[in-house]
């Protein structure tokens, strides 16, 4: 497993992501306190929380941050494999008619984002949804693109990018695993 981005790089990328979101015209035109950030559990949730903290500091307004568990919306939920245990969704605010930024750590096939969009609309009808990711890698299978991204990467199709973010992980880092185990999806070994 090779470290491709160290802690300082990741911190800078997260700061840049917050900047990109703040200057986006449709989000800049949003009334204070209306913006909602929603992260896909688990690293997307951490990313949303950390961007949320930066946005609060820079704008001096509150930003709602939620977390969605997409386990029940995946298209491979009933595949030939043992079942993973879901973590649950934490959305203690309404998203109707509000701008929402959806966060994930890595955008790869686009299937997780598709599942997350289906899950989000079960909570209401947002004004619009934008997608922010730390790593935008190649290999898209669905017509989905990121509106905000930290780094774009082109890697071998069977390799895996693993993002580690504090405080869930001991430190920030991005790893490239060229020969991942064929373990449960999304699990870095």
């Amino acid at each position: 497993m090779q470290c491709v981005l160290a802690a300082d790089d990741v911190r800078q990328i997260i700061s840049d992501l917050a900047d990109q979101i703040l200057v986006a015209p449709d989000i800049a035109a949003t009334a204070p306190g209306r913006l909602a950030l929603v992260g896909i559990r688990r690293r997307g949730e951490v990313l949303a929380q950390r961007v949320g903290t930066i946005l609060r500091e820079r704008t001096h307004t509150d930003v709602n941050v939620g977390a969605i568990d997409i386990t029940m919306y995946r298209d491979d939920v009933m595949g030939a494999r043992p079942m993973t245990i879901p973590m649950g969704t934490l959305m203690n605010f309404r998203i109707d008619d509000r701008p929402v930024v959806l966060f994930d750590d890595v955008l790869h096939t686009g299937r997780s984002v598709r599942a997350a969009l289906d899950s989000l609309v079960d909570f209401g009808r947002p004004r619009f949804i934008r997608l922010a990711v730390l790593i935008d890698r190649d290999g898209r299978e669905y017509p989905i693109r990121a509106d905000f991204f930290g780094r774009q990467m082109t890697v071998a199709p069977d390799s895996r990018i693993c993002v580690h973010l504090a405080p869930t992980d001991p430190h920030d880092a991005v790893y490239l695993d060229p020969h991942p185990d064929t373990g449960p999806r999304g699990v870095c070994r």
Binding site: D69, T71, M72, Y73, V77, M78, I85, P86, M87, G88, T89, L90, D118, S119, D122, F123, G124
Partner: peptide, 19 residues
């Protein structure tokens, strides 16, 4: 743990997941 994650579904306006 799974039940705890799924309890929230019954609090939504659309009380259903497609699993």
């Amino acid at each position: 743990d799974t039940a705890r994650a799924l309890k929230e579904v019954s609090t939504r306006s659309i009380k259903k997941v497609p699993a």
